[in-house]
Computed example of a mutant assay.
Amino acid sequence: MFVSRLLAMCFLCVLAAGGTVAWKQRNVTIDDKHGDEVTGIAPKYLPSHAWSSGPRDGLNAKPNASLAYNGTWHDSTHWVNNDQIIVNFGFTGVSVYVYCIIANTPPGPFFDAFANYHILLDGVFVGEYRHDVEMIPDYFYNVPVYVNTTMQNEFHNLSLVANSTERAVLLLFDYATYTVVEEDPVVASTSTDTAAPTSCSLLPTTDQPTGNSQTQIEVIVQVGAALGILAFFVLVGAVIFHLNKKSRTPVLPGTTLRHISRVPRHLATFYRKIVRSLTSHPGESGGVVGDKSSVAQVRSQNKD
């Protein structure tokens, strides 16, 4: 385990030395008039003669320009049984947000403020936005009429379509925002002011030990010490047990006599009598241990 972690640290050091690649996300706005703030491509309005850029004199819808994005919007009305009106733009990203200005009071006696939009993404119908007139003088700004945050990071084409068969539809397109994912290369730098050092050490220093390795070493030391202490006490206990057992083992007369049988015959009788006299007890034949009469008898027999 410790070796594998060292190898992993080596691999990370190599990556840090050669530079790493990170991913970042940022939002890009597509203005109704000025277009994509990165590419400069403006949305397409179809049919072109059905659209007007606001604010402008003669338009029936009069939102507050200071509340619109960049102070502009695109205005069109779809009449029942007329050709559909379309806002179309392309982008590369993982999410998109489409914003419109929503009117509530009909802008004129012959116009309606009804909002009913169909959304097509890459040629496929993906949603609908609908808002009925509330008969109030207010306009709603920055209204998200379509939101999608689960797209693949690739080029997409979006169309906002008004083609109602109920009544006239007012479409005031303001802007759209999409999220793009980009590579963000992080290049190693030797400057201490702009980047942190990328060098690293395989082995922990005494001032900055690595937590996992230090913990493993401490555990190994503690376990080894505990096993050593346990082994010491087991050894001491075995020695004490052995010595105690040996001290309690009696000396048998038969063992002594076996050793006596190895001496010359004329001394054997003398030694046997001494052993019998030493191992005898009061009241037994042969007298008391250390009795002078028994010793005198042994000496007289030795002379004979």
Results as ranks from 00 to 15, higher is better:
residue 250 P to A: 04
residue 1 M to A: 08
residue 82 N to V: 03
residue 163 N to L: 04
residue 254 G to T: 11
residue 201 S to Y: 10
residue 33 K to M: 14
residue 3 V to P: 04
residue 296 A to I: 08
residue 203 L to H: 03
residue 291 D to R: 00
residue 224 G to C: 15
residue 230 L to G: 15
residue 103 A to N: 08
residue 56 R to F: 03
residue 150 T to F: 00
residue 23 W to T: 11
residue 75 D to I: 01
residue 123 G to R: 01
residue 18 G to W: 02
residue 258 R to Q: 14
residue 26 R to L: 14
residue 160 L to E: 01
residue 246 K to A: 15
residue 126 V to G: 07
residue 119 I to H: 02
residue 287 G to N: 06
residue 146 Y to H: 04
residue 281 H to L: 11
residue 121 L to E: 05
residue 64 N to S: 11
residue 235 L to H: 06
residue 204 P to E: 02
residue 3 V to T: 06
residue 127 G to W: 06
residue 181 V to R: 09
residue 21 V to A: 12
residue 286 G to R: 02
residue 189 S to E: 14
residue 137 P to F: 00
residue 94 V to D: 08
residue 134 E to Q: 13
residue 203 L to D: 04
residue 145 V to Y: 00
residue 210 T to R: 14
residue 110 F to D: 15
residue 10 C to S: 03
residue 129 Y to H: 10
residue 225 A to L: 15
residue 185 P to L: 09
residue 82 N to D: 15
residue 290 G to Y: 04
residue 85 I to E: 09
residue 153 N to V: 01
residue 268 A to L: 09
residue 99 Y to Q: 05
residue 147 V to G: 00
residue 240 I to R: 12
residue 20 T to M: 12
residue 209 P to V: 04
residue 168 A to G: 12
residue 42 A to C: 13
residue 210 T to V: 12
residue 164 S to L: 06
residue 196 A to M: 11
residue 43 P to Q: 10
residue 71 G to K: 00
residue 45 Y to T: 11
residue 191 S to Y: 01
residue 187 V to H: 05
residue 186 V to M: 12
residue 144 P to T: 02
residue 118 H to F: 06
residue 102 I to L: 09
residue 145 V to H: 00
residue 123 G to Q: 01
residue 170 L to N: 07
residue 189 S to G: 08
residue 16 A to E: 14
residue 177 T to E: 15
residue 149 T to Q: 12
residue 79 W to H: 12
residue 116 N to R: 10
residue 304 D to E: 10
residue 78 H to M: 08
residue 18 G to T: 13
residue 199 S to R: 01
residue 48 S to F: 07
residue 42 A to F: 06
residue 83 D to F: 03
residue 191 S to G: 07
residue 264 P to V: 09
residue 85 I to L: 10
residue 184 D to I: 03
residue 63 P to D: 08
residue 274 I to V: 14
residue 166 E to D: 13
residue 288 V to A: 10
residue 121 L to V: 02
residue 160 L to Q: 01
residue 108 G to K: 01
residue 34 H to T: 07
residue 23 W to L: 10
residue 245 K to D: 14
residue 273 K to Y: 07
residue 34 H to W: 11
residue 94 V to I: 15
residue 281 H to P: 00
residue 151 M to K: 00
residue 58 G to Y: 05
residue 128 E to A: 13
residue 171 L to S: 03
residue 79 W to C: 04
residue 69 Y to E: 13
residue 108 G to L: 07
residue 57 D to Y: 04
residue 176 A to M: 06
residue 165 T to E: 09
residue 19 G to R: 00
residue 58 G to P: 13
residue 192 T to A: 14
residue 107 P to F: 06
residue 5 R to M: 04
residue 91 F to N: 05
residue 212 N to G: 03
residue 58 G to I: 09
residue 277 S to A: 13
residue 223 V to A: 11
residue 291 D to Q: 07
residue 283 G to V: 06
residue 13 C to V: 13
residue 81 N to W: 01
residue 43 P to W: 09
residue 151 M to W: 02
residue 230 L to Q: 04
residue 87 V to I: 10
residue 79 W to L: 10
residue 152 Q to I: 01
residue 102 I to Y: 02
residue 241 F to P: 02
residue 283 G to T: 03
residue 107 P to C: 04
residue 112 D to Y: 08
residue 272 R to F: 10
